[in-house]
Simulated scan of single mutants.
Amino acid sequence: MLMKRSAGERIFDIGNMMFMIVLSIVSLYPLLYVLFASLSDPDLMMRHRGLLLFPQGFSLSSYVHVFDNPMIRIGYMNTMFYVILGTLLNIVMTALGAYALSRKGVLWRNPIMFLIVFTMFFQGGLIPSYLLIGNIGLMDTRWALILPAAMSAYNLIIMRTSFQSIPVSLEEAARIDGANDFVILYKVILPLSLPVIAVMLLFYGVGHWNSWFSALVYLRTRELFPLQLLLREILITNDTRAMMTKIAGDKASIGMTIKYATIIVSTLPILFIYPFLQKYFNKGVLIGALKE
């Protein structure tokens, strides 16, 4: 049975719809601007002023120059290494810590949890971290970007709360069958926590993909640089010379479109992965945020 809606409710729905449309346009336009600019003819784009609603001409020359740069390929490989290995280590460490801290019989569980939460508000800072990385021999190595970020306190709390929501009776039944803690975690807890694990994959993966500051501080060898640090060089220091060695024409115009093409190249992988994890996102966050 359809309920008759009042004039005020219809006005609210229309206003809400208009607001969401405007919000979507404001959110999407910067990305569309970068995409259209990267596909535009460099000379036409150089002369364009104002809003960009479609590509100015059509040219893939910027993408050709981006992929011709060996450092972009190296940066991609480095970033994939950091994302895959780093995220795998993050999930393992977070799952082990969350499982241990979610069990009621663990000794000193509350004091340990307090110390973990304490690190969210009070940290040593950049200089002590820099000295620590140098003293343990991780400076200018790949591990300097992976080991210090092995676990996030915030994500640990979310996963711990999710594990606590699983009925204790399942664990007790597994123990009666002779399962130890590792078997319970692997065969009982984790299969029931796929939504929150998907959220952790998204959080950790995006964090590693977008990370550049740690590489800027700890790395000196350019062959170890992630893609985002190379992107920073291109955008902030305005350094596109490595991609324009074979260009004989106006380097200023092609340099501008190269910047936009580099942004698209470094952003598309995350945009493609997110839809596959999005369906778990809301459920995983809610499960990890609320305890039954």
Results as ranks from 00 to 15, higher is better:
Gly57Lys: 05
Ile136Ser: 04
Phe281Pro: 07
Leu271Thr: 06
Asp41Gln: 09
Ile166Thr: 07
Leu185Ser: 03
Gln228Val: 04
Lys4Glu: 12
Lys283Val: 09
Phe54Pro: 00
Leu88Ala: 15
Asn210Met: 09
Arg10Lys: 15
Gly75Asp: 00
Gly178Asp: 09
Ala215His: 00
Leu156Lys: 03
Tyr82Met: 01
Pro195Cys: 09
Ile258Ser: 05
Ala98Val: 06
Leu286Glu: 12
Ala174Lys: 09
Leu131Cys: 02
Ile264Val: 15
Leu231Thr: 05
Ala150Asn: 07
Ala150Glu: 00
Tyr33Phe: 15
Ser152Tyr: 04
Ile189Gln: 05
Lys251Val: 14
Phe118His: 03
Val92Arg: 04
Thr94Gly: 08
Leu147Ala: 11
Val217Lys: 05
Leu23Thr: 11
Ser38Cys: 07
Ile234His: 02
Phe272His: 01
Thr245Ile: 13
Met256Asn: 10
Gln228Asp: 01
Ile116Thr: 11
Tyr260Thr: 10
Leu39Gln: 04
Leu96Met: 15
Val92Thr: 14
Ala95Met: 12
Ile270Phe: 08
Asn69Asp: 15
Thr267Pro: 02
Ala242Gln: 13
Asp250His: 09
Gly134Thr: 08
Lys279Met: 07
Arg10Glu: 13
Thr257Gly: 08
Val106Gly: 02
Ala215Trp: 03
Asn238Met: 10
Tyr186Ala: 14
Val92Asp: 03
Thr245Ala: 13
Phe276Val: 08
Asn155Ser: 14
Met18Pro: 00
Ala261Leu: 06
Phe122Asn: 04
Ser38Met: 02
Pro128Thr: 10
Pro148Ile: 02
Thr221Arg: 01
Glu223Phe: 01
Ile247Arg: 00
Ser266Arg: 01
Trp212Ile: 07
Leu229Thr: 08
Phe121Ile: 14
Ile112Trp: 09
Ile236Glu: 07
Glu233Asn: 15
